[in-house]
Each structure stands twice: as C-alpha cells, then as structure tokens.
Amino acid sequence: MKIRLGAVLLMLAVFGGTAAADHVPVAPPLPLEYEPVGRVIASVGAFNPYLEVLGRWNDPSPGFGYRSVTVGSYFRVIRNLKVGAFYRLQADARHNDDWVASGLVSPGWIWQDTSNRYENLLVLDASPRFLLPIPGKSTVFMLKSRWTYNFFNGQQSLLLRPGLTYFFIRDRQPIAEIRLQYAAYLALNFGEALLYRQAPYLEGLYHLTPDLLVSFSASYQNRVWTTSSGVVAAGDSHYSVNFPSLRFQAGIIYRPGF
C-alpha cells in the first residue's frame, strides 16, 4: 500500500512538475555560435571613426540569426581614456519578452520569430586603459564600459569588461596580441536579474600588416532569461534560467590612418 502511494506521489510530482514548468524556457544542449565580423577603425587625429558589421550563425539553426551594423567614433580624451558614441542597427536580438504563448498548442510557450525585427540602439563607451608596470611593458589593462539604450523597448544595459592584453613586439611594432577578458552585462531597467549575461573571453589577434589584423576569439556565454511579460500576464510563476552557449568569433580589422 505504501509503495503504491509512493508511486502515485512520484508520478504526480513528475507530471505535475512538467506541466507547471511549461512556461519556463528550457536551455538546449550547449549550442555553438559562430560570429564573423568586419571592422574598420580609422585614425583621424584624436578620433577613431568606427564601422562594424557582424553576423551570428547559430548551430544547429541554419542561417544568420543576430546581425548588426555599428557606426560611430572613439575620441581620445587623454592618453589613458577614450570615449565613444555609436549608433547600432540590429536584427533578431532576443529579449525576455520574446518568450510568448504560442497560441497554437495550449498551453505552449515559444520564442517568437524576431528574425526580421530591426532595432535602433545608442551606445556610449568610456574605456580607461593602463600600461601595467611589469617587465617588457607590453601588457595593457583596460576596463571597457558601455551604456546601451535600445529605442525598440527602452531597455538600458551596462557592459563592464575588464581585460588584459599582452602584445608580442618585434622591432618596436606589435605583431600579435592575446587578450583575456571577462564581460558582465548589467540590466539597468529590465528583467529580474541584474547580471543578465556574462562571459569569459580568450582572444588572439595577428597583425598581417600594421593596418590589417585578423582576430579569433572563443567565449563561454551565459545568458539569464527571466520572466517574460507574457508569462506574468498568464499568471504563471516567475522563473530565471541560464542559457549557456559557446561562441567563436573570427574577425578582420582594417585600421587606415589619415
């Protein structure tokens, strides 16, 4: 009798639990993301006009998902500080509220299709950097800090990305670099998790010429999804789930000087 009751309770727990979690997105097995990126960073006095074109190929989903174009400029305020202002046009960016009731399979929940949704963003950057007093004087510490405002949904976020760059120097000129960084994305006015995304980065850059570089990076991305407005409206319980992914980026950087 006791065994039968236990089995019933176990079945209730399993199926009841599954039913209750239908509104909670489930992370897929570690997805791989591939990002080709091209950048032009010019030098005009203290200004660095900037253009970036980026796409993200999600595996196993075919085709490019997220893609963006960024234009703007850095300005060197003092030797150890650059500020920048940029405009970004992006498509297929996913937000918490993109987790919606499917309307087809009740009570199913899906990520809505955002592949053709374009968003405008303002990005302001202030990145202090210092040459570390260690032998060789070839290591730079930089704290990249970026405030982003998304005109699509009014969301504001802050990126804090401390990093170390070691320069390999030959004949007084850098020929390669290796970077170790940690990126923390803070949600300033949205979601239920302050730290909604974080990632350690390892990046290598090689100077083909003084003006032309190639870069390769790998990062372990951790994105936290919190309760969407659709789930709140449906009266379901709140959630906070982590979606990790492995992202590889390959870039080409052109740095003309004028």
């Binding site: 950048r39 960073i41 660095n48 900037y50 970036e52 850095y74 060197r76 030797r79 150890n80 650059k82 990145s127 950097r129 210092f130 040459l131 004087k137 070839s138 730079v140 760059t165 320069f167 120097i169 007084r172 000129q173 850098p174 670099e177 850059l205 570089l213 870069s215 870039g251 950087i253």
Partner: peptide, 11 residues
Amino acid sequence: AYSDLLNQDYD
C-alpha cells in the same frame, strides 16, 4: 613612430 599600446581599440 612607435606603436602606442594604449591606442589599440578593436571593438
């Protein structure tokens, strides 16, 4: 004439 390691921005 010398590379300024504090003037290297890539993203």
